[in-house]
Structures are given as C-alpha cells and as structure tokens.
Write a protein that binds this DNA or RNA. Structure first.
Lengths: 349, 349
DNA sequence: GTGAAAGCGCTAACAC
DNA sequence: GTGTTAGCGCTTTCAC
C-alpha cells in the first residue's frame, strides 16, 4: 500500500511538501496573495467577482491553508490546550465535551493532554509537558486543578497565555479560576449523612489531592459535630468498581458497625453497592452510600446512587468564554467564578 | 486580576508578544542563532563549553521554543491528530491513553478531536473539521472507523499526511488500517449464545454504523444456523445504562420468550442486567446478557458480564508506531493489521 | 564545531 | 477593493 494511492481525480498534484500554497492559488486566480488571504479570512473585504475567482481556484487546487504559518505571523493559534489527569474517567468528560463544543463555535480547536494523577512525583515530566504546550503558543490553557509547582506557575505566567485553573480553589490563581471547594463538599456530605442519622462512617478516598481534600473536609466537619472519627481507606487513583468492592470489605472488617460509606468517586460507590448487595445488606437502612461525580448510571441503577454533582459542562463553557474574551484582548467580567456543587438525593442514602 | 501578576523574580521580561526568541538567547550567549538551535535540538553537535553557555542563557531568559515557527520551517509538526466519535465513552479511552503514551515517548503530542456519531448527517461540519486538522499539518492522523465520504477521503489522501483508520475494516483504506470485523463479532456472539442453548434472542443496538454492523452480523449468522430472527431494538448512540433498562422492557413486551440479549455496548448490557434483576429474572438461566467493550466494571459486577473485548491499547500503540515509522520516511512492515477480538466468558451468559 | 544567508507560508502595515 | 513590502521565529543549506 503506497502513501497516496490515487492522486488522480484532482486537477494538479499537491504532494511535494506540505500541499498547495497561497502563492499557487493567487497565481491561478490572477490576484495577489493577500487578496486570497482576505477572501478566505475576511470575505466581506473582497468584491464578489474576485471572491468567486478565488473560491474557484481554491476548489480546483484543493487548497488547505497552513495554520502554522498563519499563526506564526498573526500570533493567533486558534488552539486551546486542556490538561486533565486522565481522559478515561467520566468525571472530566462533561467539561471536555462542553469545551470542545464552545470552542468550535468560536473558531478554536481543543487539544487534550493527559497529565496523570501523580503530579508531584514527576516534576520533570510535568515541566517537559508544559514546555511542549507553551511551545505551541496556544491562545489559552485550561488546567484541571491548581498548578502547585512554583516553576510551572512561573512558566505559565511569563508565557503571557491566558490560563484557567478549574475544579479546585486557591487564593492565588495563576490567572483565571473556576473555583470549587472540595473541603465544602466533604463537609456537606458529612452534614447530609448526619441529618440522615448516620454517624459511624467510612470514607473510600482516592489518593489524589482533591479527593483527599474532600475526605479531609468530611473529617473536620465530623469533629465539629462531635461525631466519631471517620474510617478513611485510601485507594490509588484512578479509583475503580473493584476498589469499591474491596474497600467495603476492608472497612467492614475493621469496623462492622459502619453505617455509611462516602466514596470519592461514583464508580467506587457503585462497587460498594454491588458488594453490599452481595453481602445481603439493605440500602440505605443498614448501609448508606454516597458517591461523587453523578455519572449517567447513578440515576438509573438500583438502588439509585445519592451523589455529589458538579456541573462540568458549565466549567467547560465558562472556561471557553473566558479564554475567548481574553484572546480578543478584553478582560473577563470576573476572573474568579465559583462553580459550586449540589447533592443529588436518591435511594442509596 | 491582571494578565501577568508577578513578572518579577525572572531576569528580563518576556511578555511583549509570544515570549523570548532564539535571537535573544543567541545574543545573551554570544553565539549565532543556529548554534542555539543546535544546542537545543542536537546537543551532540555542539561543544561542551558552548552548550553550557547556551543552557545558561536559556535558563536565565526562560526561553521556550516556538514550535509553530520550527514546524513551519522543518515541515515536522510533531503533532498527531486522533478523531473519535466521543471522548466520553470508555470504549476508545484505552486507545487514546495508549496513543498518548506511545507518542509522548517518541516526542509527539496528541490532539484529540470529537467528530460525533452522526457523520453522514453533517457533511459540512466534517469537512470543516478535516480542513482545520489538515491545516495544522500534523505528522499523522488516527481515524476511529472508516472515512466514507469521497470528499473527505480525497482531502486526506491529497494532504500526503499518514492516516491510520481503526476499529473497522474495508478493502480500500485511505492509507494504513488497523482492521476489526464487526460482522465477525456479531457472528461470534451468535455462535456463542447458540452454543449456550439460547435461540430466541434480542439485540439492543446503537444506531451508529459499527454497532449496526455487529447486529447485522448476528442476524446473518442466526439465519445460517436456522435460528429465529433476532429482535433488533435500535437506540440512539451513545447508548446508556437507562437505554439498557428501557430496552429490555421494550423487547420483553414484544416477545416475553426472549432468552438472551446482545447489547452493542457494555453500559447498555449493565442496564439490561439491572432491569432483569429488578424483574426477578435469573441470570443467565432465564436471561443471558452479553455486552461489547469490556469495561472495568464488567469483571467485578455481580453477575459479572460476558462481553466482547477489543484491545484498544494495542490499537493505540500500533497506530503510534505506524505513524512514527512513516513520519521518519520509512514504510511500515504492514499497512493493514488485523486487531481481532475475543469473547470474555463470565457469569451473565 | 560554528556561522551567514535564505526562506518555510502566511498576514500586518501601509500604500494606492 | 487591491497590492507591495516586510517579517513572524525558526531551520535548511552551504560555507568555513
């Protein structure tokens, strides 16, 4: 199989290097290069007759503009970079879909990078990734979580690229912030379970920073309320269904009187429910279960899952707006927006 | 909050446009631009003393090379584009993770684009997306599924960019192909259920092309075996847990004697199991259920899910190899590789 | 081992 | 409405 089997069928060949250039289109249409450029990017600046000639030439030659060249000259890449811990999980996919859609509507493309959950451990990898990203001169960068490394923050700041940190809170954002308090989430879950009459509680927590902060918020609130110390069972992120099953067995072994389990992900919570059902426990009577994320399945499973919902789509859409505003040289109305969360009451707690 | 709060702490400011340039580094290090370029890209071509001087200057100025400029000149973008129907689902995330990892190891970055499931309906959107992609002159493009539109195929072919089509089969690939036969999958599932003594079967099928092909393969095999015609219940993609629950009710209403359900996604299959359990049906005795995708949860749920597994990680790794090989001017050993699949026998069927 | 000149493909700035 | 000139930041090519 050759690289380009049938180049027939198109007038003119165009393989040599990176394809047809503006110059060739200009020659074919008998106008200057800049006129072709305008016909493509600002058609209203060009007369109807010229436009037609240019379009015909573009069509005939199969011209596709080289965005690297245009971006180099105009300092606008129409590229936005998003960094997420993992593409796999469903937690951030709502944000990514909204980002893609909002940006596409504004003429931008989204590039997704995976940074992993381990952050702190691999400073050099993070640094390399950041340089690769900044090197492409994106018009904006969306970070999942807060950038902690001083070096990374400095790199980002001095790049002058609009940055939106999301899904977490900090008093000192690099630039813009879509704030979410994991401490408040943990506290709210504690209050909710307390109101439901559950005081002996276990927490199945991913070992990533934000999950740990939710667990910590829960613990602090439990202390304030004078409740027994929650049993915290750490699990390496990303957390799975199997982690939930094993986690419930583990905490029950340590304390059979556990009345509720708060999981830092829905998938783990579903695992806990699976295990609880397998052990013949009644839900939420004998065991209440809460998750985090509000996956699709949470609403339609049996029993349905009480969980914490964060509006990822809103994060994506707002981040896109902020970046587009800044890329156009304006200042967003607010550089810090609190996203908030809600507890979705269902059958499991 | 200003665009760049603290530019102090770094020697020299670097905001003006796109940051520090090679020229400035060269001046600071007292060498020519090309020497700096070599010190960064081919350190072994430069003397140790020069290297040190350059590195010091790079460090001091916080220089991050502009990849757009380099790519423009060298016709190498070190960028690979992957197009998937949806980022959300877990089906393709294994491929994406493997792609990201393999490419990163080879010095490439992956850009993920979402094309949606509707394809045929939005020709113009597909065309625009394709042009935006080709415009960035990636060193490779990974397509989920086969590109059908003649215009799209032509655009891709004449771009000269290495293309890998994946997750489907065709006698006429654009360039390279990681082949998977959905017809064979449907047939294999039919054989499997037939061997298990299930003849009256329903299929809950997503309305996307590949899912429909799996359903069709099943149907054809059923005919060959002289089995009753399977009841096909179409569902709009992407298919959900709720679709599975509702789907089982629907097919049971039309034919209460159904003995098995084949779902074109694991998530739907889990929904079917949820509904079956809720209705008090015994699995796999009264109802056998099979899925597609082998999500994590399939192995650890109760009853565990019998499903079809495709090695997405292998697809990602192989695609990365093929593209890197081609980008370096070589010819891959094979332009068409069959990926294959396996049926993972568990408790639900 | 190092450098000077040229130019990748496009658009900003300024004419006319 | 259209064109000319210059140059974005880098790497290729050829020289020394």
């Amino acid at each position: 199989m050759s690289a380009d089997p049938d180049r027939t069928g198109l007038p003119g060949r165009q393989q040599d290097k990176g394809g047809v250039t503006l110059r060739e289109v200009a020659r074919a249409a008998n106008v200057s290069m800049i006129t072709v450029s305008r016909a493509i990017n600002n058609p209203q600046q060009v007369s109807a007759i010229t436009l037609e000639k240019v379009n015909a030439a573009v069509q005939a030659l199969g011209y596709v503009p080289n965005l690297m060249a245009g971006g180099l000259r105009s300092s606008r890449s129409y590229l936005v970079m998003a960094l997420v811990p993992t593409i796999t999980g469903s937690l951030f996919s709502g944000m990514l879909e909204a980002l893609t859609a909002s940006l596409e509507a504004k003429g931008y493309q989204l590039m997704v990078g995976q940074i992993g959950y381990e952050q702190a451990h691999e400073k050099s990898r993070e640094d390399a990734l950041l340089r690769a990203i900044i090197g492409r001169r994106p018009d904006g960068i969306v970070l999942t979580g807060i950038m902690h490394s001083a070096q990374g923050r400095q790199l980002l700041k001095s790049s002058g690229i609009p940055v939106v940190e999301t899904w977490d809170s900090t008093p000192t954002p690099i630039d813009m912030l879509l704030s979410l308090s994991h401490d408040a989430i943990g506290r709210a879950v504690c209050d909710y379970l307390h109101d439901a009459g559950k005081s002996r509680c276990a927490i199945l927590s991913g070992d990533d920073e934000r999950a740990q902060r939710r667990a910590e918020g829960y613990r602090r609130r439990a202390r304030e309320l004078g409740l027994p110390e929650p049993l915290v069972h750490p699990v390496p992120a990303p957390t799975t269904h199997a982690d939930g099953r094993a986690g419930l067995r583990a905490v029950l072994a340590r304390d059979p009187s556990i009345q509720a389990v708060f999981c830092t992900s829905d998938m783990m919570a579903i695992g806990v429910i699976t295990e609880a059902v397998a052990q013949g426990l009644s839900l939420p009577g004998q065991l209440a279960v809460m998750g985090f994320g509000d996956m699709d399945i949470a609403a339609s499973m049996t029993p349905s899952l009480t969980t914490v919902r964060v509006d990822g789509a809103a994060i994506g859409a707002t981040a896109a707006d902020m970046i587009a505003t800044r890329a156009n040289g304006h200042v967003p109305a607010q550089a810090v927006v609190d996203i908030g969360f809600s507890i979705v009451k269902r059958d499991s707690a």
